[in-house]
Structure formats: structure tokens, C-alpha cells
Nucleic acid binder design. Structure first.
Length: 925
RNA sequence: GGGUGCUUAGCUCAGUUGGUAGAGCAUCGCCCUUACAAGGCGAGGGUCAGAGGUUCAAGUCCUCUAGCACCCACCA
């Protein structure tokens, strides 16, 4: 730590060392308190890396965590990583593929070893990045979903659910990913419209010359057809129901059935039914007890030993079959057709409905409770409308397929004997005990869906199933901060499992944040080449490196040129280093409820400048207080108007901030802080202190008063800002704490300022507004007349009442120096003044005599502009007040306000008119 | 086919229980004033997507329309 602040704010110089200091001193460890506060991090993929969404989310969680820690809560931000089954396994398989090895070459055990090796190698990336974000997580409690403890929890849950009949194994149609060779859940399938064809095939009616035309988007599945269906009331076909058609190329005759499922308006009104390869047909098949004919293998190639299509990939077979239909004159026609194609969210492969044995969770009973707690308000979504999305899904929920045919994950704790009996147990010994010692058992090869263990995260990380003190202290946790995209995957399942196994909700609030998009509003993605890396915003990156980063490893290398072009256009100079605090402030300022955010560099630059402003103001404070008497020893101090004003405003702002943070309005919080620091503390207060501090006639008590206020307000500001900008506030605080006479190792353990409404001196605020009004009036004239800011001007004030006069006289030094007045005189009537430019403050005129700097023409113009505005106001208010309905029905206060507005405007108008006339006369004569 | 949002200054966004529109950035003037040019001071800029309704009063509440975005869903 340096002993003073550098001349320039350079985040790179301070951030990392501060974090290390915090971590080494265990500053993130919860300090004991009666009230607890806990946030669970949504565990990132252990081998993943930090993207903008994480950075946004982490900012919000850290902000809340730091705030509550400072508030004195026993605050835990629980950190950890997810094993991310499919995603991680894919990464490692891809790496092995580079050496021409596939996982089967290695075998299960060796392959899993490889994954653990990869985890050890790359698993630190994201934790390092979290540290760079300033995340104040308790690293000593870091968990991994495949830790021993968490794995035990998974087994316990599985066994219990199985024993209660809430987990079952069954042969059903599932979403099969033919590339990954595993079943996936409904949520892992993404459907999108694609261009395809509708093939109209002729199925000859048995013992007849006629045929039925069936339309299909997937001709190859015809090999597995077991019926043709028509609508029961479709008169065209009623006579055929009960007969059979000959299924071409198979020698099979399949029944013609009637079912409501068929839409008679679509196509020919005849539908081929393939129960083993289509979810609708599966249901139809069950209703009509049709044969389920599986014609595919794990790779989605045709599996029909003896058939000429056997072994052909589904798309090869499709082509072949279409040709064969055509040759046999059984192809009626081919139409272009848009269809919805389901693809695996990981592999991108077209998903096949496929008949396999899988494990399922029976969700309906769990969902019922999970719906209730949200209805009852035990869990609140922020913003509230997300609860609709939640209800919608939960009320239509299907059983959850939890088995995956991959190797990386929690292996399903089920064993089979040679007869195929199932023994679910915590381990092989238990299973053996259940099966009898003679049984030869083999464990199920499948692993559980990653989300199964994630669903336990809020309590498994706290030690469950043990009844640990942590569980007791922190559970239920306070808020879950996450994106809407995983409400179904994760939030809903945590609620279900939380209720089931702890009888409590896992968290009381769910804060849903929006998506971080690029500045055009596009979703950031590697393939679009518009990804921003939070670390690049923090550290900066040169253009060539950025281009290289965005164009390497693309799935479609063709895109590289386009990406390079747009990147070079958008970031001609690369990206500057903005620092973590500026990035965090940007996120906080954009964190409005329920809206995606566009990330714009102009914004982060603005907030980096804000950091710089704070930094330099602090330098000013230090320069003027270090080694000086700052009045911290209970000596007599005299507070100036500015001192009393800023202290009062500080109280008001403190009150605002607490409201804002408690209602998750971080954007408003950021706005309040920004404008208070910049517009009030820096632009007014700090400037005004210069007058006292540079005045040789200032008394010791006055100097002490100003120094003390300067330092105290700054120190308080640092605490107020700390949750959003942890680094810069810590760095400055270390310099300021001694002057402010506060002790402590770190600002992060100081109390968050609490407003004291009795400390608000409203008189000081009103008086200060008067002073500001006069100065602003003069600045106004100065600005509009393009008078050099350094030119001192003579000022006259006319029409001040006795109170105003007293305040202005008392603060004449402020006015003269801060306003750069050459002189200040008070007069009774405007005639006492020479021809002047005028600014109105309340009922007073602030006058600057015409001279070489101001000409009358310009002043008339300026006044006329002002007059126009005032007349518009008058017209508006008069209109309202002359409306009898308004006067009769509007509340007293509103009418009073309008009358006051009108009176003020009328006064202003008459003053303006008078001035204009005077100017005109002056010009004439 | 259902559902949820969004449309406010050139751009990105605020706008609390209805009381007559704000910020940042950008723009235009004047300034290197001893914390800060990553700065200071001043100014300009909006029939709040459109139409209708409720009301004394609508950016705000209701209805409809248009455009955009996202989520869910089994039309071959």
C-alpha cells in the first residue's frame, strides 16, 4: 500500500494487491452476529470462464454481500463450482480427439481421471476471474458438486426419493442425442424452425387398388409405422377405419385407426403413426395399443437387421426411401415445408425421440408444494412478473428424465442382479445386503443430470444431510441472484428439492437479472464474434489481440473476416483499461428490474471518469488535511453554511440509498451516489471549502470545522460507495481513516452509514439553495454572454428580504470568490442600478451592469427567451386554475401548488418585462 | 397457438401511490481557475410508438392497433 495517492487514478496499480490483502487476512469470513445473511453463488462450470453475464451477476451478489456485511449481518457468500456433466465431458473429449483418442479407448475409469486432471488444470481460471471481480466470497468454504459431501447428499436424495416412489425407472420415449449418445431432458432441447420438405407418400390399401396419402417430414420413420390414423369424423375415411394398409418395403400390414389427434384440415387428413419415434404418435400408440417398433440405433442409423436400409444413417435412409417410393410410383408429391427441428443444446445434433430405459423423477407432487410457496409469498420473485413464468411451467410440468449416458457425473446408485432386479442403495455393500450375498451385482452405468446435484446446492453446500451449525445459521438463504434462463433448470428444482428435504424454502427471494447484450442489442456469442471479456474491460486489450481472440477457434472459420472487420470498426484503438470498480459501477447503474442491458463502452468510460473524480477529490482532501488539525479531538469547531449543508444532504442521501438497495434498485443507488459525489460534494462543497481554507482570516475553529467535515463526509462516502466499488474505496479509505479518526483494518468491515434524520438541518439546505441560486444566476449570464470565466464581475442584488439579505451577507465571501464577483452590493430599487443583465432568483434580481462584456441587444434577446418560457408556464397553470372542475375536485395541495406556481411565474414575468423595457429604453437613449 | 416484456432527448436508459418529463453519453458555446482537460461553467434538444377511453388531470390506469424481443407448446 502506498502512503499517498498517486496523481492519477490507475486501477491496475491497486486492485489486485488489495484483493490479496483481504483474502490473506480472511476478511471474507463471516463475523458472528445474531442476524445472518447468505447468498449462494450459482455455481459456474468448473472448467468454464467468466463472461459478462457472470460479471454482472457477481457484481450484484458482491454488492449485496458487502452491504450486509457492513450492516453487521453474519454474511456468507457461498462459493463453489459445478461439475457440468455434459459440457465438461465434451471439452475433455474434444481435447482427446486432438490426439485421436476417444473415451472408449481409455475406458471409464481412465477417462474420468483425465477429467479430474483437466479440472485441476483449468479449474482455477474462473476462481481467479472471480477474484478479479472483487468477489468477497468465503473461499475457505468453496465447494464442488462432486465433492464427497455433496455426492453423499446426492445419494441420500436419490435413495429417499426412490424409496418413496418419486424416482422410478421406465422404458419411455426420450429425447435422444445421437451425437452425445445420451438422453437429455426436455429443457435441453432447443426447437427452431428450419426449412424442410413434406413428403406425401402413398400407402396402398390392403386388397384394393386404392391407397391413402400420408404426409411426413421424416420419411425414414415409415419403417417403424404401426398404423395410419384419420379423424373419427372425417367422412372421407370412415369407411376405411378398421381396414389395413400395406406398409411399403416392409411387408407389414398396419391398421387404419381413428383418433382425435388428427387434424382433418391438414394435408390429406391421414397421418402415419410411428409410436417409437414421435412423441405424439407415442401417445396415439398407447391409446390404441399399437406395436412400438424401434428402427434406430444409438447413432440414429437404421437398425432393422435383414432390411436393405439396415445400417444406413437416418438421412441416407431418407434419401434412399424417397427414391424407392418414387420408383414404386408411391410418391405423391413433395412440398417445401417449414418445420420445427429439435436440437440438443450442447451438441447441436437433431434430437431423436428414442425408446430407452431411463430414470425419472415424478415431479408433480414436488411441484405442487413448490407452487404453493410462491403463491403464499414465502418465495418472492424480483421483479414479480417472473412468478408467472414459473407458475406456467410448474403447472404443466412433465416427469424429469435424470439419467444420462455419459461418464462424468454422479453415478446412479442402483445395482442390478442377473435377473435384472433393481437395488437402490447408498453403496454396493448396502445393495449387496439387500440383494443377498449370493447375488452378482452390477451398478447402473448412467450418471445423473447435472441439475440434480445443483438442485441441492443451497443446503448441500452447508453440510446437509448433517445438521450443521451452518445449515442452522444460514438456511433458508436470503436471495438467489440469477438469470431467467435457468428458472426451470435450476430455480424450480432447488425449490422442489429444498422443500422436500429441508421442509423449508431454499431462499426467500429470487432476483432475476437481464441478459448482457452488446451495444447493438445482440446476444453475445462466440460465433457472432461480439463477445466482450470482462477481464479485457478491466485490464484493457489492444486491437490485434482482441481480433485474434474473437476470430480463433470459430466453428465457422468463414466468419473470421467479417468479425475482424466489425471489431476493428467498433474498437479502432482496442479497449482501454477501465478497472474493476468502473465495470462494477457500470453494471450496478444498468441493473434496472427485468430488462436486458446493452453494454456500451461510453458508459464504462463515464464511470471510470467518476472513479477518477473521486480519486482526485480525495487527493484534494488529503492535501488540505494531512498534518493539519482536523478537529477530531473534540476541540471547538465552527461549521460553515456549506459544512452544515453537505452534512444534511449526506443524511438525506444515506436514507435514499438504504431504500434503493433494499428494493434491489441498484441503478438508482448508483445514480444517487454519482450525483451526490460529483454534483454536490465535488462541484459545490469541495469548491466552497477552498474559500475557507485559503482565507487567512479564517479562525482555527472554522478551519477545523471545514477540515473535519471534508474528511468525515469523504470517509462516509467511501463506506457508502464500497459495496459497488470495493477497490478504490479501500485504497482511499486507508489514507483517510486516520484523519477521520476511525480505526479498523479495512473499510469492508466498517459500518454501513445509517441516516439520522434528526441531523438534517433544513434551514442550512434552504440557505444554501439561495447562495447556489445567486451563483448560478451569475454563471448563467456569464455563460450565455460568453464572458471569460476568469473575469470578475460586479454584482448587484435587488429585492432581497431581510432573511435573504442576512444569509447573503453572511456568505458574502462565498459569493465573491466562488462566483468570481468583483463586488457585491445590495440595493432596494432597480433604479439604483445602472443598466444591467438580469438573473432572477426567487423574487430577487441579480444584476450585472452592462459593460464591455455585455451588450444590451444580447441581453434583450436572452430575456425574451426567458420571458417566452415564463409565459408558457403561466398559460398552462392559468388554464388549469380557470377550469372549475379542477378547482372543485383536485386536492387542496395540488391547487395550492398550482397557485404558487402561477404567482411565481407572474412575478418573474413582470420583472422580465420591466427589464426588457429598461433595456430597450437604454438602447434608444 | 399460448405467455411475458419493450417502444420516453441523436444514443443508452430512469420516471415511485395519476399532478404536467429527468440522468449519463453525444452536440454547441466559453475556459489549461492552484483535486481532476478522464476537467470546469453555460446552452440547445422530447405532440413520452399510434388511436380511443376513464379522470378536473394520463408517460403513468383500461381497450385496441403497429413494430421489436424473449419464453413455452405435440400439428404430421
Amino acid at each position: 500500500m502506498s502512503n499517498t495517492l498517486d496523481n492519477q487514478y490507475q486501477p491496475a496499480k491497486i486492485e489486485q494487491s488489495i484483493y490479496q490483502r483481504w483474502e490473506q487476512s480472511n476478511a471474507f469470513k463471516p463475523a458472528e452476529s445474531d442476524t445472518a445473511y447468505c447468498i449462494m453463488i450459482p455455481p459456474p462450470n468448473v472448467t468454464g470462464s467468466l463472461h459478462m453475464g457472470h460479471a454482472f451477476q457477481d457484481t450484484i451478489m458482491d454488492l449485496l454481500t458487502r452491504y450486509h456485511r457492513m450492516k453487521g449481518d453474519q454474511t456468507l457468500w457461498q462459493v463453489g463450482m459445478d461439475h457440468a456433466g455434459i459440457a465438461t465431458q465434451m471439452v475433455v473429449e474434444r481435447r482427446l480427439a486432438a490426439d485421436n483418442i476417444n473415451r472408449h479407448d481409455l475406458g471409464r475409469e481412465k477417462f474420468i481421471e483425465k477429467i479430474w486432471e483437466w479440472k485441476a488444470e483449468s479449474g482455477g481460471t474462473i476462481t481467479k476471474q472471480l477474484r478479479r471481480m472483487g468477489a468477497s466470497v468465503d473461499w475457505s468454504r468453496e465447494r464442488f458438486t462432486m465433492d464427497e459431501g455433496l455426492s453423499d447428499a446426492v445419494q441420500d436424495v436419490f435413495v429417499q426419493l426412490y424409496e418413496e416412489g418419486l424416482i422410478y425407472r421406465g422404458k419411455r420415449l426420450v429425447n435422444w442425442d445421437p451425437v452425445l449418445h445420451t438422453a437429455v431432458s426436455d429443457l435441453e432441447v432447443e426447437s427452431a424452425e428450419e426449412n424442410g420438405h413434406l413428403w406425401n407418400l402413398r400407402y396402398p390399401i390392403t386388397n384394393s387398388d386404392e391407397y391413402m396419402v400420408v404426409a411426413t417430414t421424416r420419411p425414414e420413420t415409415m419403417l417403424g409405422d404401426s398404423a395410419v390414423a384419420v379423424h373419427p369424423e372425417d367422412e372421407r375415411y370412415t369407411h376405411l377405419v378398421g381396414k389395413t394398409v400395406e406398409l411399403p418395403f416392409t411387408g407389414r400390414h398396419i391398421p387404419i385407426i381413428a383418433d382425435d389427434y388428427v387434424d382433418p384440415e391438414f394435408g390429406s387428413g391421414c397421418v402415419k403413426i410411428t409410436p417409437a419415434h414421435d412423441f405424439n404418435d407415442y401417445e396415439v400408440g398407447k391409446r390404441h395399443s399399437l406395436e412400438m417398433i424401434n428402427v434406430l440405433d444409438d447413432n440414429a442409423a437404421i437398425h432393422l437387421p435383414g432390411s436393405p436400409y439396415h445400417g444406413q444413417d437416418r438421412y441416407v435412409a431418407r434419401k434412399q426411401l424417397v427414391r424407392d417410393f418414387e420408383e414404386a410410383d408411391l410418391l405423391d408429391k413433395i412440398d417445401d415445408h417449414k418445420l420445427v427441428v429439435p436440437r440438443g443444446d450442447r451438441s447441436g445434433a437433431v434430437i431423436e425421440p428414442y425408446l430407452t430405459d431411463q430414470w425419472y423423477v415424478k415431479v408433480e407432487p414436488l411441484a405442487r408444494e413448490a407452487i404453493r410457496v410462491v403463491e403464499d409469498g414465502d418465495i418472492k420473485f424480483v421483479p414479480e412478473n417472473w412468478s408467472n413464468t414459473y407458475f406456467e411451467w410448474m403447472r404443466n410440468i412433465e416427469d424429469w428424465c435424470i439419467s444420462r449416458q455419459i461418464w462424468w457425473g454422479h453415478r446412479i446408485p442402483a445395482w442390478y442382479d442377473e435377473a435384472g432386479n433393481i437395488y437402490v442403495a447408498r453403496n454396493q455393500e448396502e445393495a449387496q445386503a439387500k440383494a443377498g450375498q449370493d447375488a452378482v451385482l452390477s451398478q447402473d452405468n448412467d450418471v445423473l443430470d447435472t441439475w440434480f446435484s445443483s438442485a441441492l446446492w443451497p443446503f448441500s453446500t452447508l453440510g446437509w444431510p448433517e445438521q450443521t451449525p451452518e445449515l442452522d445459521k444460514y438456511y433458508p438463504t436470503n436471495v438467489l441472484v440469477t438469470g431467467f434462463d435457468i428458472i426451470f433448470f435450476w430455480v424450480a428444482r432447488m425449490i422442489m428439492f429444498g422443500l422436500k428435504f429441508t421442509d423449508q424454502v431454499p431462499f426467500h427471494e429470487v432476483y432475476i437479472h437481464g441478459l448482457v447484450r452488446d451495444q447493438e442489442g445482440q446476444k453475445m456469442s462466440k460465433s457472432k464474434g461480439n463477445v466482450l471479456d470482462p477481464l479485457d474491460l478491466i485490464d484493457g486489450i489492444d486491437l490485434d489481440t482482441l481480433v485474434a481472440k474473437r476470430t480463433s477457434g470459430l466453428m465457422q472459420p468463414k466468419m473470421a473476416a467479417k468479425i475482424e472487420k466489425s471489431t476493428r470498426k467498433q474498437f479502432p484503438n482496442g479497449i482501454e483499461s477501465y478497472g474493476t470498480d468502473a465495470l462494477r459501477f457500470t453494471f450496478a447503474s444498468q441493473a434496472t428490474l427485468g430488462r436486458d442491458i446493452r453494454f456500451d463502452l461510453a458508459r464504462i468510460e463515464g464511470y471510470r471518469n467518476f472513479c477518477n473524480k473521486l480519486w482526485n477529490a480525495s487527493r484534494y482532501v488529503l492535501m488540505n488535511t494531512e498534518g493539519q488539525d482536523c478537529g477530531q479531538q473534540n476541540d471547538v469547531v465552527e461549521l460553515s453554511l456549506a459544512d452544515r449543508w453537505i452534512l444534511s444532504r449526506l443524511q438525506e442521501v444515506e436514507a435514499e440509498l438504504v431504500e434503493q438497495i433494499d428494493s434491489y434498485r441498484f441503478d438508482q443507488m448508483a445514480q444517487s451516489l454519482y450525483s451526490f459525489v460529483w454534483d454536490e460534494y465535488c462541484s459545490w462543497y469541495v469548491e466552497l471549502t477552498k474559500i475557507v481554507l485559503n482565507d487567512e482570516s479564517s479562525s482555527a475553529a472554522q478551519l477545523r470545522g471545514t477540515r473535519r467535515t471534508l474528511v468525515r463526509v469523504l470517509e462516509t462516502l467511501l463506506r457508502l460507495l464500497h459495496p459497488i466499488m470495493p477497490f478504490i474505496t479501500e485504497e482511499i479509505w486507508q489514507q483517510v481513516k486516520g484523519l477521520a479518526n476511525v480505526t479498523g483494518e479495512t473499510v469492508m468491515h466498517c459500518a454501513y452509514p445509517v441516516a439520522d434524520s434528526t441531523a438534517v438541518d433544513s434551514q442550512a439546505i434552504t440557505q444554501m439553495q439561495l447562495v447556489q441560486g445567486v451563483i448560478t444566476g451569475v454563471r448563467n449570464i456569464r455563460g450565455e454572454m460568453n464572458i471569460n470565466p476568469s473575469k470578475h464581475l460586479p454584482v448587484l442584488i435587488q429585492g432581497a428580504n431581510s432573511d435573504e439579505l442576512a444569509v447573503l451577507r453572511d456568505n458574502q465571501a462565498y459569493l465573491n470568490q466562488f462566483g468570481r464577483f468583483e463586488s457585491l452590493e445590495f440595493i432596494d430599487t432597480v433604479e439604483q442600478a445602472p443598466e444591467s443583465a438580469t438573473a432572477l432568483v426567487r423574487d430577487m434580481r441579480v444584476l450585472i451592469p452592462l459593460g464591455s462584456f455585455i451588450d444590451a441587444e444580447a441581453e434583450i434577446q436572452r430575456l425574451n427567451k426567458e420571458l417566452e418560457k415564463t409565459e408558457k408556464d403561466i398559460a398552462g397553470v392559468t388554464g388549469r386554475l380557470s377550469n372549475s372542475a379542477f378547482v372543485e375536485k383536485a386536492p387542496e395541495a395540488v391547487i395550492g401548488k398550482a397557485k404558487q406556481q402561477l404567482a411565481d411565474a407572474e412575478t418573474a414575468k413582470s420583472l422580465l418585462v420591466e427589464q426588457i423595457e429598461r433595456m430597450q429604453e437604454f438602447l434608444k437613449g
